[in-house]
Nucleic acid binder design. Structure first.
Lengths: 192, 192
DNA sequence: GTCTATAACTGGATAGAC
DNA sequence: GTCTATCCAGTTATAGAC
C-alpha cells in the first residue's frame, strides 16, 4: 500500500508541475495538495528533483516501448507513420501531465547530470521518426522532394505541442485530432 | 543615451529569460551579464516583472502591426495566408528571445493582472488566423472539409514552436523554413 | 549610473517526536 | 507516515553613499 501512496503523491506532483511549471511549484504546494505537510514528503522522496525524475522516467519507458513495437511491425511505411502519430496523440490523452512536463521542462532539466537520459531519449525519438520518414520516401508513399529533417521537426513539434490545448473529455476525442492532423500532414490544406 | 542603456539591459534580460526561463533567471544573473551589480538594475527598472512586461509589450505591438497590414491588404486569400506565415517565421528570426519568452512564459505570467493583455493578444491572434482561413475556404483556395479551428491550432503551434530549434545564421534561412513549411501545410507530404 | 550593505522573505531540506 | 520545529541558502528589493 505504500507503493500506492507513493504513486498518488507523484500524480499530484505531476499535475502541479504540468500546470504551473516545475520551478514554479514548491514542495509546500505539493504537500498542501496532498493534505500533508512539506516535511512529510521527504519520507517518500529524496528531493523535489527525484520526483520529477521518476515521473519522466516511467513515462518515457512506456512511450518508447510503443514506438519500438511499431518499428518492429511489418506494416507498410505509411501505416507505421500513421500509427506513430496516433500513439503520440493517445499519449497526450493518457499522460497529459507527463507530456507537458517533458515539453516544458526537458531543456532546463537536461542540463543536470541526472537528467542526461532526456537527451538520449530525444535522440532516440529522432531516430524513430527519421526512420519512418525515410522508409516512407523509399517506398514511394511520401514525396521525395521534402527536407526530411525539417519534416521530422514539424511532426515532432506539432504532435507534442497539442498538449497545450488538448483536453481529455473536451468533446474532441484524441482519435479525431489524430485523424485531422494526419489529413493535413499527408494531403495538405490547399484545394486539390 | 539613457534610453539606449535601458534597451541594452532589456536585450540582455530577454536573452537570459529566453534561454533559461523567467523564473530561473535571477536579477543577479542579469546584472552579472551586464557587468553591474544587481542593485544598480533598480535604477532602470521597478522590478524583474517590469522588465519582462516591457519586453513582451513592445514585441507584440510590432508583430500585430504586421498582421494588421496583411489583413488590410487586397492580396488574394492564399497570398495573405502565405504572407502571415512568412512574417511569423521572420519574427522568429528577428526576435527569437521575445518569441521564446512569449511561448514559454505567457501561460504563467498571464495569471497576473498586469499581464492581462497577453490573453487579449492571444484572442486577437486567433482572429487573424481564423479570418485568413475562412477567407481561404470561402474563396476556394483551401479545402472545405477541414476543421478550421483545428487547422488554426496546428498552424499557430507549428509556426511558433519552431523557435525551439531555429537558429539565425544556422545555414537554414528563415525564408527557406517558411517555404518548406508552406509546402507541407498546403500540399501535404504524401506522394500525389 | 553604479556600488555598498542589508532588509525581508521564500523555498528546499533535515532531525527527532508522535 | 505524518507533524513540529527549524536551518540555511538564495532571491527580490531598498536606502543612501560615491
Amino acid at each position: 500500500m505504500s507503493e500506492t501512496r507513493r504513486e498518488e503523491l507523484l500524480a499530484i506532483a505531476a499535475g502541479l508541475f504540468a500546470e504551473r511549471g516545475y520551478r514554479n511549484t514548491t514542495v509546500r504546494d505539493i504537500a498542501d495538495a496532498a493534505g500533508i505537510l512539506s516535511g512529510s514528503l521527504y519520507h517518500h522522496f529524496d528531493s523535489k528533483e527525484s520526483m520529477v525524475d521518476e515521473i519522466l522516467r516511467s513515462f518515457q519507458e512506456e512511450l518508447f516501448g510503443e514506438y519500438d513495437a511499431i518499428l518492429a511491425s511489418d506494416d507498410d511505411a505509411r501505416t507505421k507513420l500513421e500509427r506513430a502519430v496516433r500513439v503520440s496523440f493517445a499519449a497526450i490523452h493518457d499522460h497529459r501531465s507527463e507530456v507537458a512536463i517533458f515539453q516544458n521542462e526537458a531543456d532546463q532539466l537536461g542540463t543536470l547530470d541526472r537528467f542526461g537520459y532526456l537527451a538520449e531519449r530525444n535522440a532516440q525519438s529522432r531516430e524513430v521518426w527519421m526512420t519512418l520518414l525515410r522508409e516512407g520516401v523509399a517506398s514511394g508513399a511520401l514525396r521525395d522532394d521534402l527536407d526530411v529533417e525539417l519534416v521530422y521537426r514539424f511532426i515532432r513539434d506539432t504532435v507534442w505541442v497539442a498538449v497545450r490545448w488538448y483536453r481529455p473529455g473536451g468533446g474532441l476525442p484524441h482519435e479525431t485530432v489524430a485523424d485531422q492532423y494526419l489529413t493535413i500532414l499527408l494531403d495538405g490544406i490547399a484545394h486539390a
